[in-house]
Every structure is written in C-alpha cells, then in structure tokens.
C-alpha cells in the first residue's frame, strides 16, 4: 500500500468574486521513503495541495471532493479532532518563511517540547533531552544554548533548522516541506536541502517537497509532479521527466534554467504571460494561452491524462493524444 494516495482532489475557494478552483482534480501517490517534488509557478496550487493533506486550508477554502488516503485512512473524512492527532506525529510540515513561522514570544526549545507534551506520554525532562538531541541532529552548533533562545536571536538558516527539528522529532512517516529554502541565502539553501535528505534517509520519512526550483528537484526528488493552474500537467520519475520532458510547460520550466554548457550569447527561454486567474480559468487546456505549440483543440477541450508507455510518466496534453499526434512519434510514446 502506498503511504499517501491523493485521488481526484478538488479544493475550491468560494469568494465573493466567484469560485477559485485552486486545486482541480489532482491525483498522485507517494510510496514509503520516497521524495515527491511538486513544481510550478506561484499560485498554481502547490501549497494548497500540501495544506489540504494536513487539513489546514484556511477559509474560505474547502475540499470539495476527492480522497486523501494516508496509510489507507481517508483524511478528508476524519473529524477535526481525529485529524489533529496525525498532525505533528505522522505528518509534519515546514514552511517557507523561517522568519515568521516560529512564535516570536516563546523560546524555541519550548516550541519543540510542546509538540511532544501534546502528543506523547513523556515527562518534561525527557522531552527537553529529546529536543536537545534533535537540535544537535539538525546541526545547530550550540544545541543546549539554542534551546533557551528566542527566534529573533537566531538567523534564518538556524530557525529553519529548528523548524526541521520540530517537524522530525516525532519521526513522522510524511514530511511536507513547503518551499523550505526559498527565503534563505543560496549558501544556506544547499545545507538545508542536504539536511532534509540526510534526515529523511536516517529516519525513513517520505517527503513532499514543494518548490519552483528545478535545481532542487534534480537534487532531491525521486518523483516529480509539475502543476499548472490547479492541475498536474506532467508527472513521473524524476529522471524520466528531466530526460524527456513532454508537456510544453515542463519544457519551458526546464529551459529557463541556465546551464554551464549554454552558449554565452544565447537567450534563456522564458514562458510568456502569467498564470491565469483561477476564478475564470481559460477553457480547454489551461496553458493554451501561453503555449507555443497550441493546437485548435487546446482552446476547446481539456486534454486527457495519458500514461507514456508502461512507465509512471503521465501527461495531460493534446500533443500526445492519438487523435492529435504532435511532435513525438508513436514509438517513443509507447516506449517500445
């Protein structure tokens, strides 16, 4: 059984201006010990997907339909109080802004310890010892001293380490990291990513990593799912998607990264336009307005989701459907 199976998830925000379909029919699975990267531009529904897993969608957002099966239990159907018991124990989350995600008026040590005291039958001393141990594990130099510090006394990187310690102290089966390095210095970014990877391996945690940085994906991911305007447009094993990106959006994302072997005078690819407003998404394929390889059908009908050959590589694009064969020839499509 997969650790996490998200099936046909729809999360809508009912606002006065209209319904925002932030996540629209999203499905994916995550196996034990696997790292899945959710990639896409800002506002494409990555964070909302992640937050809906731990039931922290804020008003006026609502899970409209779909299932989130965590070890077989449908989290969508659970009562608030039952879902709360999964949070911080089985499923942990770290956020983008280490500067603001710790409570400024409580000592960081206490913020870790309170999680243990809430969920586990431990004494205060045991909890403190465990917290210090985990502060050491996330490579905070003076773990004992840091325990008694307030967030504003720590740097951004240190705070994110504290967040990671807090998230992993209960040895959760699933860690959701929502852009954990976006707000950090480039030098610190790599340290934090390596830390997440090492701890993931030693604790046997599965990870959902949300990012818009393809470099991060290449570094950490086993699987990748590319989201655009509330939908997953392409997904698969990371090497498949990187070797053979099919969706024009994925091609654009990968093309926008500078490489060492890019000729000096050539321009980087950029995808024209912006993510559409999700109150009134474009008809047909949501990407068609920005797509360089648009077909007539793209404006009319939503593309079907297809599996490429017998791999895990899935894509939703008319270019690769039988009726509208595009650039890829049949052999390549069926992987034979």
């Amino acid at each position: 059984m997969a650790l996490l199976e998200v099936k046909n998830l729809r999360v809508y925000f009912h606002t006065r201006e209209g319904t925002v379909k932030a996540v629209d029919d999203v499905s994916f699975t995550l196996e034990k010990n696997e790292t899945l990267c959710l990639v896409g531009e800002s506002g494409c529904g990555k964070s909302v997907t992640a937050l809906s897993i731990i039931g922290l969608i804020s008003n006026p957002g609502k899970i409209e339909s779909g299932q989130i099966l965590f070890e077989g239990v449908d989290l969508v159907k659970l009562k608030k109080s039952e879902l709360r018991k999964f949070r911080g124990t089985e499923i942990s989350m770290i956020f983008q802004e280490p500067m603001t995600s710790l409570n400024p008026s409580l000592k960081v040590g206490f913020q870790i310890v309170e999680l243990l005291l809430e969920h586990f039958n431990v004494s205060k001393t045991e909890a403190k010892n465990l917290a210090v141990e985990f502060l050491k594990k996330v490579k905070i130099p003076d773990a004992v001293g840091t325990y008694d510090k307030y967030p504003h006394q720590l740097s951004g990187g240190m705070r994110q380490r504290v967040m990671i310690a807090m998230a992993l102290i209960s040895k959760p089966s699933l860690l959701i990291a929502d852009e954990p390095t976006t707000a950090l210095d480039v030098t610190i970014q790599l340290q934090i990513l390596e830390l997440i990877r090492d701890l993931k391996n030693s604790l046997g945690t599965s990870v959902i990593l949300i990012t818009h940085d393809m470099g991060v994906v290449a570094n950490l991911a086993d699987k990748v799912a590319v989201m655009y305007a509330g939908k997953i447009v392409e997904s698969g094993e990371v090497f498949e998607v990187f070797e053979n990106p099919l969706h024009p959006y994925t091609v654009g994302l990968l093309g926008s990264i500078p490489k060492l072997d890019t000729p000096k005078n050539s321009r980087l690819i950029s995808i024209p336009g912006n993510v559409p407003r999700l109150i009134n998404p474009p008809k047909g394929c949501r990407f068609h307005e920005r797509c360089s390889r648009k077909l007539e059908i793209c404006e009319i009908a939503e593309p079907p989701e297809m599996t490429i050959g017998n791999s895990n590589h899935r894509i939703a694009c008319w270019l690769y459907s039988d009726e509208f064969q595009g650039a890829v020839d049949t052999d390549e499509r069926y992987g034979s």
Binding site: I54, G88, F95, T100, S101, L102, E114, H119, M166
Partner: peptide
C-alpha cells in the same frame, strides 16, 4: 505563519 505552525504541530 506561526499560528499555522502551531496548528501543524497538532
């Protein structure tokens, strides 16, 4: 954000 963190801690 820290309220979200507190809730995420369960």
């Amino acid at each position: 954000e820290y309220i979200k963190t507190a809730r995420a801690k369960g």
